[in-house]
Write a protein that binds this DNA or RNA. Sequence first.
RNA 1: GCGCCCGUAGCUCAACUGGAUAGAGCAUCUGACUACGGAUCAGAAGGUUGGUGGUUCGAAUCCUCCCGGGCGCGCCA
Length: 578
Amino acid sequence: METFQSLLAKKLSDALAAAGLPDAGELTPATDQRFGDYQTNAALVLGKQRGENPRELAEKIIGHLNVGDLCEPPVVAGPGFINFTLRPGAIAEKTARILGDERLGVVETESPRRIVIDFGSPNVAKPMHVGHIRSTVLGDALARIATFLGHEVIRDNHIGDWGTQFGMVIYGWKNLLDQRALQQDPLAEIVRIYKETNALATSDPQVREACRRELVKLQGGDKENIDIWNECVAFSMQDFEHVYELLDIHYDIQCGESFYNDRLPGVVERLLKSGIAEISEGAVVVFFRDIPELADKPCIIRKRDGGFNYATTDIATIDYRLDDLKADSVWYVVGAPQTLHFKQIFEIARQQGYRADLRHITFGSILGEDRKLMKTRSGENVPLRGLLEEACRRARKIIDEKNPDLSEAEKIDVAQKIGIGAVKYADLSQYRMTDYVFSWEKMLSLQGNTAPYLQNAYVRIRSIFRKAGESWHRHPADEQVGWKPMPLQLGDSAEINLAKRLCQFAEIVPHVLNDFRPNILANYLFEVANSFHTFYEACPVLKSEEPVRGSRLALCDLTAKVLYRGLDLLGIKVPEKM
RNA sequence: GCGCCCGUAGCUCAACUGGAUAGAGCAUCUGACUACGGAUCAGAAGGUUGGUGGUUCGAAUCCUCCCGGGCGCGCCA
């Protein structure tokens, strides 16, 4: 199904051709309601190119525009914009058709790709903390949206389950472990011994050396150390799974760093053989002499002591994803501090001849109330699990106040949907590059541009349908077999605005992936909820007469569907009551 | 020192990638409750987009130089 935007873009293109003009400019939603619904700057661009008067060009283009079925007659405005205002009849017709479409008008991509999305990636022997929210929630939302648009998505959890920290964990396990504490709260005890060993190692060179030896034994396949490592990984995975269950985020594969161990020597060997890497000061290093930006920033892929580091692992990971998984594209949802690292390994991939689309999707840092960076290794981080449980507790408290009549089971379910939704939405509704100030109040506030506001709009609609009778009892997720689009009656400006908004869903969703910005979708959904509330105040639904009543119910129905689907694409659930 | 990112209303953030008079939400003020769920709605107030110079029909957006903040820069991940 074509969107208004794509329909008008085609008509514009036709008109330009008919006028003997080249394609130029773009057709976009109007920047302001006063300018109608859509606008094009084609005449401005052409005027500049050809040294002609833009307003005269605009008139000429309008003379060839054939949009009477969609719009009022287009008008020239300002320096030479052409403005389009949709006719209510066209909006009503489109709205009805979207209502009958399972995809709500969103067309699948014409060039589906296989995309590996690398997100989350917590470290073993450390609990997940607030710093993991952004990558996890953002990556999941992008995966959902890409899937909906017709791409084949592989969600990969690149767990940090290998590396020098295990020297310390194993040393601590052998020397500091408290068995009783391990049984009570395994991960907490592992974290404790890791932290204590870390402290010892910084002050005592002998401990540091002992940790290094444990690491070498682990890497050499020592049975005792491998067993300890396995246990630590298992305990950590249990903790991760609990968080993923709460978040309702699930992976297709979880190939952690250790998965690539036996591939590392081959990677280094191949890069040396092909001349991409060379030996420098005893280490194996890749230099980027031809790239000014990286010229003085070499990348070490084998340390002087023969050990591999995470650059080696990431190169092996790219090989695996492209050669074995046959990915066309890999998206790394990883914080901005690693920008240089990814530039390096992407460049190495390019030098090896890979032509896949590799993207580092960065995001800002999580800051504390003091506006300083929350440190990963400080040990003072807020555990993610506790944070999510706290969110649910706070949501529960509000539900108890606002809606005490719900059953206990409903309260538990609703509190989880609201609490988790609030945390996710807080992240997804803002531009990913800006730093995020962590704040309980901000995250859990149920006022304003928040998940609960959107959920409430949905709940109100569901409440209307509960009262409307049997024939309207379909759930928005249910299939609609045999739905016949019926003409809507759009009279009130609140109805027209809401309908236009709903038609834009198909324009917004694909746009999110242009720059990996779910906040565009979040803001759109907020506008939908806002338009709905305005409509809800201005236009009685159940009390109005047919055919207006049916038309308004249809509008409510589509609003519920758009909110349900839109929030689902963000990984946020909606309750039926709240 | 070099490189990357950021600076928008008192606060938290938008602005569909160069479009018209820069928009929301909190907070503040004024209205609307015998309510299709008020977790709402209508309205007011709030700005030299850090500063400067430039590019052009047009700049928060692009280029220059300053100011301020964050992050990174050979054997950690």
